[in-house]
Amino acid sequence: MTTLIATLLGALIGVVGTLLIERNRARKAEQHEKGHARAEAYIAFVVAVHATSGNLRTLALKIAAVPEEEQLQQARDAFRSSGLYAAREHVVLVAPERIAHAADAVFVALRGLRQVVAEGGSVHELAYLSEVENYAAALGHLRSMIRTDLGEVPLERDVSW
């Protein structure tokens, strides 16, 4: 009888151990998948941010030649054409709250830049340069937060753009 109990107890320990190992492996796989999904969302957002800022810069370079009544619409089109709204929503859905807010700060900074361009601001005007500075600071902060979230050390000095 003692041998039977010992055998059953050994089998039970083996099964429980296997279940715990499998549960741990499944958790790690889920965390890896979530991390990958966040990384993809972050990359899509930053790519859309750069496309948007590039579109606004291109418009700001030629804004003097754009009729005043078309400036607002062209600035809006430059902002919308990059997929920034969808990328922003993706980040809001998958990112930790602090990163969602940092991404929103970048979005708001770009809206400020859009407004300056919509009002006829060129790349040489102080208002434009000031908004670019706000945008760059917000983007640098977001990059640091994303790197930390992805397990990387923040850059000591942000890259130029």
Rank of each mutant, 00 (worst) to 15 (best):
L129D: 09
L150F: 08
V91M: 02
N24Q: 07
L93C: 07
A29N: 06
G14Y: 09
E156R: 08
V91W: 04
S53Q: 15
D149F: 08
I5Y: 15
A109W: 10
N134D: 12
N55M: 06
G35I: 00
E97P: 01
V123N: 04
A100P: 04
V46G: 01
L129S: 12
L84Q: 04
S144D: 14
F107N: 04
A103W: 03
A44F: 03
V123I: 07
A102T: 04
A78T: 01
A65K: 07
L142C: 02
G112N: 13
R27L: 04
G120N: 02
L56A: 11
D158E: 08
L20V: 07
L19S: 06
V92G: 01
W161G: 13
A102I: 05
A137N: 05
A39W: 06
R23M: 01
L93P: 02
T52M: 02
T18I: 14
S160R: 15
R88W: 13
A26K: 08
E131P: 00
I43F: 15
T7Q: 08
A105F: 09
S81V: 04
G120H: 03
A138C: 11
T148L: 15
L84N: 03
G10Y: 15
E89M: 15
P154T: 08
K28H: 13
I63G: 00
V47A: 13
A100S: 15
E70I: 02
E133M: 12
S160Q: 14
A105W: 09
A65H: 06
M145R: 12
D158N: 03
V49S: 08
G17P: 01
E33T: 08
G83A: 06
E97T: 13
A6G: 05
F79M: 07
A95Q: 05
E156H: 06
H141R: 14
H90G: 03
V94M: 11
Y42A: 07
V106R: 01
L19C: 06
L110C: 06
R88E: 12
T2A: 15
A75F: 05
Q31A: 12
E119P: 01
V116M: 07
A138L: 12
L139P: 00
T3S: 11
